[in-house]
Every structure is written in structure tokens, then in C-alpha cells.
């Protein structure tokens, strides 16, 4: 099935309004906590005061999918959990984005071996993913960089400097 990777477009579109809306949406992403495994702890650490996801507008983790617009899939998706995660993805209203946080959400992570029977090999087997954050688990800074990449994807330009390593 052809997966549509960007939110479907509206009935009426104005260029300037689109830019303003995109800026607003990018800087106030409300994540739905979908912490499944160890990556969830890194997500919690990012939400706490040291690494502070609130600087980027994304601290309001919503427990209900109807109030969220970003789904951060943190952790291993098991086959038993797959129907639940698909239901929750359906129930998030548009425009919605998905971040695959951690190796398990990207491709099944360390739990993929020939003969494995329980793990869905990546969130993109279920629905389209916008940003992939590799790591097992990725550091909170990596999750923040993922949020910034998503902002860049939504608005078209990156507002924050690129941090040099070392």
C-alpha cells in the first residue's frame, strides 16, 4: 500500500498562511507518549529539566491521541502490541507526524534474528515514519536533534545551529 508520508493537504491553501501554520505547528509539537521499552526512559529524561524538551515547545506529552500531533514510538513493537499502536495512530487527527525513536522502532533493533516470532521489524512496517533516530537507546540530545529535524521537515528551514561534535 502506498504510504503517504506527509499530512494530506487542505481544501484552501494560502502560501503565507501555510508558512505561518507550519511555523506554529513545528514549534508546538505535542507528543503522544508512546513509550514501549527502554527508549521511553530516554524520552522521559529528555522531558525532564536537564535536557528540557520544553525549550522546543514539545513538553506537553498528551496521554490521549486525540490531543496530540506527534507520536514518538520509543521502544520495541511486539506483534501483540501492533493492533493497539495502529488504532492509536488512526485516532491522532491530522496533521500528524511520527518519530521512530531507537533501533527497535527503526528496524526491530537487537531483537531481530532468523526465527524470531514476536517483534515487528520497525514502525515503518505499520505506518509512515517521518524521522528516524538511531541509537540503543539514543541519548536525549539525539531525541532533541530528531525534534529539530522534524521542525526542519515541517517548516522547510532549520532555525537552530548545527552542533559540531568533539
Amino acid at each position: 500500500m502506498e504510504k503517504q508520508t506527509s499530512p494530506p493537504s487542505a481544501l484552501i491553501r494560502f502560501a503565507v498562511l501555510d508558512k505561518v501554520l507550519a511555523l506554529g505547528r513545528a514549534n508546538s509539537l505535542w507528543p503522544m507518549t508512546f513509550g514501549l521499552a527502554c527508549c521511553a526512559l530516554e524520552m522521559m529524561a529528555t522531558g525532564a529539566s536537564r535536557f528540557d524538551i520544553s525549550r522546543f515547545g514539545a513538553e506537553v506529552f498528551r496521554p490521549s491521541p486525540r490531543q496530540a500531533d506527534l507520536m514518538i514510538v520509543s521502544g520495541t513493537i511486539n506483534k501483540k502490541m501492533a493492533p493497539a499502536i495502529l488504532t492509536l495512530y488512526d485516532q491522532i487527527p491530522e496533521p500528524k507526524w511520527v518519530i521512530a525513536h531507537g533501533n527497535c522502532a527503526i528496524s526491530g533493533g537487537p531483537f531481530v534474528f532468523p526465527g524470531q516470532y514476536s517483534v515487528v521489524e520497525g514502525a515503518d512496517k505499520l505506518f509512515p515514519v517521518d524521522v528516524y533516530i538511531p541509537g540503543c537507546p539514543p541519548r536525549p540530545e539525539a531525541l532533541l536533534e530528531g525534534i529539530l529535524k522534524l521542525e526542519e521537515k515541517i517548516t522547510g528551514r532549520r532555525r537552530w545551529p548545527i552542533v559540531e561534535g568533539g
Binding site: 499530512p7 493537504s9 487542505a10 493492533p83 488512526d90 485516532q91 505506518f127 509512515p128
Partner: peptide, 19 residues
């Protein structure tokens, strides 16, 4: 209605179900 996205992407058609 005019400036929102036209439809919600869904895969198991559970968009309208109570949460």
C-alpha cells in the same frame, strides 16, 4: 474545515472509535 487537512490517514479504520 477549510484550512485543515482533508482526511486523516488511517490503516485500521479506527479513527472514529472511542479512545
Amino acid at each position: 474545515h477549510l484550512i485543515a487537512p482533508a482526511k486523516t490517514r488511517n490503516y485500521v479504520h479506527k479513527t472514529g472509535q472511542a479512545i
